[in-house]
Design a binder for these strands. Structure first.
Length: 224
DNA sequence: GACCAGGCACATC
DNA sequence: GATGTGCATGGT
């Protein structure tokens, strides 16, 4: 909690999903799931443009997206990059949900965390980070999201190694923090904020991964 | 013009 | 099992 306190002091509450403005009967669950796929290796600002296009075109339900063609979907999500790949991944996800529960994504997400994670990972195009993002931010269940920033920042502070795999890093965090969905939600967002500000990939981080940076809010902290 | 962004699947060795 | 590659837009 030492790191979290330091990050929180520096950046304040990040207010990632779900937001008070999350629209519709599903509390924004569908939008969060779509965003989780669209943001793969992509700047969030570009994802927002793609989501706005989907919203404006009425792609606001599982069945609505299920009914549309790959080409139309791809055209709308173009600003998020990798649009052909992501259109296919969105379709894979939507088809899976539609065949399981029809339009009711809340029901789809409402199952034990481990079972939900396994099911999401079985869908082509959904890897561990995307699955965990959906579980934490859309389903509101306790699972930690590990991304490139997480590994960079934790490596810098000697809490993991660059070669540690996803599950190992996830375990470091989950075993060090109280199991609290709201905390894990904001903790991941704080890590991203720190990463953007203080731990860019090259050249700084890879050349001197363990040296503290000036003004790093977590300088001197050595526990999560 | 180069680098980066809230990854993933697939091919190849 | 580890490593390399394709996918693509938009901001800095």
């Amino acid at each position: 909690m030492e790191m979290y306190a330091a990050m929180r002091r520096r950046f304040g509450h990040q207010g990632w999903w779900p937001t008070a403005a999350s629209p519709g009967p599903d509390d924004g669950a569908l939008e969060i799931c779509l965003g989780a796929i669209l943001t793969q290796n992509t700047n969030w600002k570009n994802v927002e443009k793609a989501l706005a296009n989907l919203c404006q075109a009425g792609y606001t339900s599982v069945s609505a997206i299920h009914a549309k063609s790959h080409a139309k979907l791809a055209a709308l999500i173009r600003p998020a990059g990798y649009f052909n790949v992501k259109a296919k991944r969105l379709k894979n996800f939507i088809t899976h949900v539609y065949e399981a529960v029809g339009d009711d994504i809340k029901t789809f997400l409402d199952r034990p965390t481990a079972a939900l994670r396994e099911e999401l990972l079985s869908i082509n195009g959904i890897g561990r980070e995307t699955a965990d993002s959906m579980i934490l931010y859309a389903a509101g269940k306790a699972t930690f999201v590990v991304d490139a920033y997480t590994v960079r920042v934790l490596t810098r502070h000697g809490l993991c190694a660059p070669e540690d795999d996803y599950e190992a890093v996830k375990e470091v965090l989950e075993s060090s923090l109280p199991q609290d969905v709201a905390l894990w939600n904001d903790f991941h967002a704080q890590i991203v904020a720190v990463g953007k500000e203080y731990c860019r990939p090259r050249p700084r981080c890879e050349r001197c991964p363990l040296e503290p940076f000036p003004h790093d809010p977590m300088a001197g902290t050595n526990q999560v």
